[in-house]
Design a protein around this nucleic acid. Sequence first.
DNA 1: CGACGCTAAACGTCTGACGTATTGCTCCAC
DNA 2: GTGGAGCAATACGTCAGACGTTTAGCGTCG
Lengths: 254, 254
Amino acid sequence: MPPQPPASGTAGPSTPVAHLRVQRVRPAYRQVADELRTQILAGTLPAGTRLPNEAELGRAFGVSRSTAREALRVLSSQHLVETLRGVQGGTFVSEPDPARVVEDVGSALGVLVMTPQLHVSDLLEARLLLEPAAARLAAQRADAETVEAVRAAAAAPRDDRDPSGFVGHLDFHTTLLMATGNLMLTLMGQPVNDVLRTRLRRAGVEAGEWDKVDACHREIAEHIAEGRAGEAEESMRDHIVELRRLYERDGFWT
Amino acid sequence: MPPQPPASGTAGPSTPVAHLRVQRVRPAYRQVADELRTQILAGTLPAGTRLPNEAELGRAFGVSRSTAREALRVLSSQHLVETLRGVQGGTFVSEPDPARVVEDVGSALGVLVMTPQLHVSDLLEARLLLEPAAARLAAQRADAETVEAVRAAAAAPRDDRDPSGFVGHLDFHTTLLMATGNLMLTLMGQPVNDVLRTRLRRAGVEAGEWDKVDACHREIAEHIAEGRAGEAEESMRDHIVELRRLYERDGFWT
DNA sequence: CGACGCTAAACGTCTGACGTATTGCTCCAC
DNA sequence: GTGGAGCAATACGTCAGACGTTTAGCGTCG
């Protein structure tokens, strides 16, 4: 977010600078979006605030309604504002939502994973780093209610076709990350899991494998329930290593 | 943090369902954006592809140019496409860029950190988990060139006003994350560091503290250079703990 | 008293036009 | 022949106005 690096033009074609093309003038819709974003992030426009309608907003910034709309599209695609139709409709500053962030990061990761820069094995390594530590923390901190949630997630039937109407079964790994009480760990781990999940071809995995996975989950859940941090961490590490073998055997590249 | 009990709606206005409003029909600009995004992510439109001009794009989707433009604004704000003006201009599918992702995640984190859901101490904990492990991996893997980069980052003068024209000094912690050779670790750690950096009031920290920090950096760099993984990890852990004290003493809330 | 239908506010979309940045090519001067 | 100035073409950027669509609220009628 550096404020528009001045094209530092010392009249020298000796610096090819590859593909770094600077946009000399920022388009109006960008300026409007940036200004609004700044105000939102600064708290001048707190969550829930209703912005003026598009026509008025345009007038306020000295631009047309179309331009104001494009600015709003930008903000809305960044989940900074939401738009409702009808009377009482309008554009509202939206509440920060961790789930949304997880979604975005996941999709960004999905893109990067297609490049040679980020390999699936990198994700697996990161996961191996993150989740055992998360298991340890969960074992140290989980209260009764959380323990119950983790147990439930471990016991839940691994059902791929998830009968609509009841979404009670969040993935075990997700639940465990949340059980640490540290949202940041969820934010880092969940996108990785999401990418891995969408990348794995389940077809090639026999049912027996899944049973084994579930057994691991239950074991870890019990360790957490009884506060055995070290054992929880160790079990989780073994589990992830095992999972990694699954992923690596079955090939990732969709 | 029990996973959001499903609203189990058994008819009856007794379940207000709070603010869960569903958008019955997705606006056209959203549909167009989604369709294009799908094609980009699927590889049907590889990076570098030049899309038809806005008018033609609109015609292709059966919408007006304004609608097509709004769709493009959405994609462009997600860094999936870039637009250039002039003849030879147009809209191009952009190359996946890790730096861009880091930036986005960082700004999303910045928003969340203002809520009670994500506390700065969560970031510090995550960092404490990530960076020592990164130091270990770096010590195990770094080649000569990487070692040199880490050394340089540790030796670089801690200069806040970063004389423009030479950006050689990336933050030590950033360099170290990259030295692991695992982009995913950078992706997870860098946004955290960015948020912390922008949050810390440097004013309240005496120069002596910074000297101490630099000494730590140099020590860690040496451990990495000589491949002492365990010691690198330990030093980094101590360093982060020390830094945490700095942050906690000085207050975060801007 | 309840259901139906109207109304108004805002967003959603369309059309057409003009401004502007950028590049390539032409044409003229030297 | 070469080099620079200037024109033309392309596609994005912006504007203006109009009409459709969605939704909440309210009034009316049975």
